[in-house]
Design a protein around this nucleic acid. Sequence first.
DNA 1: TCAATCCGTATC
DNA 2: ATACGGATTGAC
Length: 648
Amino acid sequence: MAVGVGLAHLDRHFDYAVPPSMAEDVAVGCRVGVLFAGRSVNGYVLGLARSSQHTATLRPLHRVVSSEPVLSPAVATLVRTVADRYAGTMSDVLRLAVPPRHARVEQEAPSPVSASAAVPVPSPAGSAAWHRAAGGAELLDQLEQRRSPRASWTALPGDDWPVALAAAAAATVRSGRGVVLCLPDAGDVSRVDEALAASLGPGRHVVLTANTGPAPRYRAFLAALRGQVPVVVGTRAAAFAPVRDPGLFVVWDDGDDLLVEPRAPYPHAREVLALRAHQHGAALILAGHARTAETQQLVESGWVRPVAAERATVRGVWPRVQVAGGGAGHARDDPGARAARLSPDVFAAVRSGLAAGPVLVQVPRTGYRARLSCQQCRMTADCAHCGGPLDQYGRDQPPACRWCGKADELWRCRQCGGTVLRAPVVGERRTAEELGRAFPGVLVRRSTAETPVETVPDTAALVVATPGAEPVPVGGYAAAVLLDVGLALSRPDLRVAEESLRRWLAVAALVRPARGGGLLLVVGDAGLAVVQTLMRADPAGFAERELAQRRAARLPPATRLATIEGPLGAVEPLLQAGTVATVTGHDWPEPTEVLGPVDVGDGRVRLVVRVPWRNGTALARTLSLLQSARSAHKAVPLRVQVDPVSLG
DNA sequence: TCAATCCGTATC
DNA sequence: ATACGGATTGAC
């Protein structure tokens, strides 16, 4: 059995004797309680055998918590694989894979399932998007015929992708197999939920998300486990869902950080589902308007095949893309134009759009602001005392340093001597107010993650939305505006370009085609690669160049990175050659770069370890051994992250 | 020579 | 965490 202790050196199975009194109740995969090193812990039965390798006499099981076999052998294997991949423990991954037990839900009489209810025949509407993509129709056919294609699908503007994904799920169900779909947020999940209800009929799927309460969550988990439903859709919480005979795994928009589990060992739903597709010989669809460098790497390796429309088809549905100069990154804006963001170009685009239908203005999230900079030359404003970033903490207060807190009463730009600071991001509220004043009589709606607007009618209306909270208009937006493109790109992040483009492609996908008058106005520098991508309507080409650049820069996914964070005294010795070999018996795989340390405060430091992609497994193994050696000596565990989302 | 104690290691 | 064993120490 697997015991529920998080210590790395105890991350293996332990044998227990089954007392005759429990023989009836115990089953492979069920929860049991045992006495382990003198304390009572829970665990899962990994297998039942007549004999044990263990020579000493076995302790008896303490109790059988429940006979429900919540950890199937396949999921147990998956959990082990994910733990190894991320240098984590099985115990940690089990917490992600098996929801907490809810006894009352477990006792509930299973709702009568119309197992014989036929899955409706495919509807033409469901496969419209697939027929637009080269290889899409074949993909559906293969799923229907119980085959297992693996694909990267680039959805087009106007594609009803929730319906398309539901059609792929239905085809798989008709072949007698199960499906798991993971989407970044609850909004996406509910759209696919609805589409699945239409394509599968009632009672054939369940929704599994973390923010539904413990009871409904366990109920949905059990429905999949017991084979009552063949399809599970949800957020990253659904990645381990135990569907019967899985035939298809789907990830939507894998560039979204929400697909990364925030609990150790921080697995990404795309990786979990790709591992499952490999494990079961099942199909995999990595779908989105954008394509990540990770997916591009899978495409280039030949493991997944691209399913995307031909150029002519793409051109036919893409909006007209117009670039308006300005925004951050331009050193010489006319100094008076504080509101370059809402320039005459923007007003013109909004005005003409409103004449034809709804208009969307996407504004960077408040709080996602870049550093204050000089109004005149755009030089970043740094603290004179410690060099940290200055920030504006109140309308009438002097700027102060985010790091040391010192206020700078008399800031002067160290490049041009300017004295006026530029607050780079104005929130959506302010933008909505400005637009409301400029277009009196027009309804201005604000949509944010906290208070999203679901849909907008096909009439003149102005929607100001933060990324990810764009309402889906019934008939497409007549125009959309991307403000401050260069500014968003100034964020200090490993994946800014990819991440920003992802958000902008999501907007482009909601705009009417050029021939229907659709316009996408990009406020930024036409020379930027991401802006070029929007103009050329070529997300796959961007992914290709992005991956090439990552290779050249030795960044993921061309390499595998891990971060190690902990007390200075524990982490710093790892920089010395031979330390890891002394501690674990194995040195870093050759070659490995160990970079750092970076002070992260509180006496803690962080190292970055980098290996070529092919050494990823060996690196994870070394990191596991390191954690094992430490936990065996009662040292505090280091915080290890394989494939960290960010290095900041 | 034996018990008390310490330390490292295993935990089935 | 707790349990155990082997090494160490100190009193007789």
